[in-house]
Amino acid sequence: MKHTFYLTMTLIAFWLLLSGHYTPFVLCCGFFSILITVYIALRMDVVDEEAQPIHLTANTLLYWLWLTKEVILANIAVCRRIWSPHLDISPTVICVDASQKTPLGIMLYANSITVTPGTVCINVEGNKLEVHALTWSGAQDLLSGEMDRRVSQLEV
């Protein structure tokens, strides 16, 4: 029940922000489309905690800021490699242990790896992640485990 309520509220906010037209007829259309969407979601049995991760905390915000910084640094590094005359790359495949306990935590860690240029998560098995890195040094940075530690802190 709680999750259904959250889903409805999220959809209403989303619809209002996207629409920008607030005449009675359009509002009615929006209302019915939200109703149908919620009904379908309930029928599909996908309304649970995972569908709407709303445990946004100050910690999450801090993590995003840190991730943004990492993404910017990684972008600069990858750009330098691409433009370097000798194409100074050393593709590496490594296996990383994820210390997160929930599937959501592992998903967050794997996505953080992929969103950072220079490292892509290829496969997830249990808590072992297979990662392809553009450079050896990029792989080393990942193995130092700072990102893993920060994602694990979010889980509590």
Binding site: V78, C79, I82, G118, V120, H132
Partner: peptide
């Protein structure tokens, strides 16, 4: 442009993924 150049220049599929992720993020 860097991403496009990378996808042209890098040697194999997995390295080209990194070039496209530059275009996607920054």
């Amino acid at each position: 442009i860097t991403g496009g150049f990378g996808i042209y220049r890098l040697p194999d599929f997995f390295t080209r993924l990194h070039a496209s992720s530059v275009t996607d993020s920054a």
